[in-house]
Nucleic acid binder design. Structure first.
Length: 429
RNA sequence: GUGGCCGUAGCUCAGCUGGUAGAGCCCCUGACUGUGACUCAGGUUGUCGUGGGUUCGAGCCCCAUCGGCCACCCCA
């Protein structure tokens, strides 16, 4: 019978890897809490329409990467390819955007049917931050400071660079799109195939093209900054000043337009050269029209999302994972001889009750002294508690699990005191 | 979606021009050590990704398929 294996591009995160994930998640949660952002959770499956209307019909994500299927009642559903649209939908549906502002975050798996590659999987995890109801650039500044703080706490700020651009308000964007299209139509035949297709529905994306011939044409094209209204331009300048003041280095990149249709205003991307082709680690921007586009209120929004496996990859690559996060055991209890198991389990429970922060692993499944001690060392516990034979009722041994292996015999009743002292933690009654 | 490389024990890999599989690590047992690690002796481990085909015979050739890696592309 053929073995069943995981679906292409979908990964199992094994026990050796989960500590890195948990560490990353912990740092992120704590930082988000420090900024007073609240967590929101929403489903993995949504109506296909949600993504078509928000991300855009002619984007790659919607056209060829969504996991779309029919529900039993014939409704078209899709696995979420990103979180922003879901977040807006959920916030709108529950009245979170009615006359109020929201600072939210979420974390979870997203799905895109792409060709798997390093740092790019079909099920991948994103942490996203979205702020609703605020139209000034102060919120953009806060989001960028938040992300920079995160890089600093993780120790990876020196390998990330911030690219930023202003798309202007919705009218600016629209007007520029028309001007650009007009210009490009004159050179239609010289454009690459993709760009020709984008002429119709997604003109700005052509600015992103890497095709040399197309790039040549773009040199003479109308420039985006020239089509941005004074207000928007002034706001952008103000944001750049705040960034400078906050000590955040940035690079204005006027061809940065982002692949999702809903963006306008400020867009940005944190990139690195340490992950091969998958250079974007975190990106986002403003999407003021999105909520209305989905049939909701006219609520401004800004946000960003970051790729968690890319973060984990970076942390591993740069060896920025703190030592000790992989240790899951403090005390290993060896159980030697018949009739000791019961005592060991009861004692372990009592230790956990009175020394709640201690992580206690009771050896199960038998085995000789040698092999149990070997496992105790391999477990990375700092200390072994050895219960041997009948005398374990009266006294037990405590062995420090280092190269010296100093062992002391203690009375069964004073085990708790000894452990409390040894690990320097408070003992409860 | 396009192109390139790859898929042999839990892990890292070897296997020459086709003759039905090996090493190291790990693991287990024993000896030694006043009971881990060190040293010595021994032992377990695989439908050679899967399914077809060519052949007297295929891990090695051919086809398909699944999966991995890398780039394009896309993006987080």
């Amino acid at each position: 019978m053929a073995k069943i294996q995981a679906i292409r591009g979908m990964n199992d995160v094994l026990p050796t890897q989960t500590p890195a994930w948990q560490y990353l998640e912990r740092v992120m949660r704590d930082l988000l809490a420090a900024y007073a952002y609240q967590e929101i959770r929403f489903p993995i499956v949504e109506q296909t329409q949600l993504f078509k209307r928000s991300i855009g019909e002619v984007t790659d994500i919607v056209e060829k990467e969504m996991y779309t299927f029919e529900d039993r009642n014939g409704e078209s559903l899709s696995l979420r390819p990103e979180g922003t649209a879901c977040c807006v939908r959920a916030a709108e549906q529950h009245g979170l955007l009615y006359n109020q502002t929201q600072k939210l975050w979420y974390m979870g798996p997203m799905y895109r049917h792409e060709r798997p590659q390093k740092g790019r999987y079909r099920q991948f995890y994103q942490m996203g931050v979205e702020a609703f109801g605020m139209s000034g650039i102060d919120i953009e500044a806060e989001l960028l400071m938040l992300s920079r703080d995160l890089w600093q706490q993780l120790g990876i700020d020196d390998v990330l660079t911030l690219e930023i651009n202003n798309l202007g308000n919705s009218e600016d964007r629209k007007r520029y799109g028309e001007t650009l299209k007009e210009y490009l139509l004159q050179h239609r035949d010289v454009l690459d195939e993709d760009s020709q297709r984008r002429l119709e529905k997604n003109v700005l994306r052509i600015l992103d093209s890497k095709n040399p011939q197309t790039r040549e044409i773009l040199k003479q094209a109308p420039q985006l900054p020239d089509h941005i209204c004074a207000d928007s331009a002034a706001g952008f300048q103000q944001l750049l000043e705040i960034l400078a003041q906050a000590g955040i280095a940035y690079q204005v990149n006027t061809s940065l337009v982002r692949g999702l249709d809903y963006y306008n205003g400020v867009v940005f991307e944190w990139t690195t050269d340490k992950l091969g082709a998958q250079s974007a680690v975190c990106s986002g921007g403003r999407y003021d029209g999105l909520s209305r586009q989905l049939g909701g209120s006219d609520t401004p929004g800004v946000g960003f999302a970051l790729g968690m496996e890319r973060m984990v990859l970076l942390l591993e690559e740069l060896e920025k994972l703190p030592a000790g996060i992989s240790r899951t055991v403090d005390l290993y209890i060896c159980v030697i001889g018949d009739g000791v198991q019961q005592q060991a389990l009861i004692l372990a429970a009592e230790i956990r009750r009175r020394l709640p922060t201690l992580r206690v692993l009771t050896h199960c499944g038998g085995g000789k002294y040698n092999s149990q001690l070997k496992k105790a060392y391999a477990s990375s516990a700092q200390c072994a508690l050895i219960l041997e034979g009948e005398e374990a009722q009266r006294e037990v041994k405590l062995r420090v699990l280092d190269d010296n292996g100093d062992t002391s015999t203690v009375a069964a009743q004073s085990v708790f005191d000894s452990l409390s002292r040894l690990f320097d933690i408070e003992l409860f009654d």
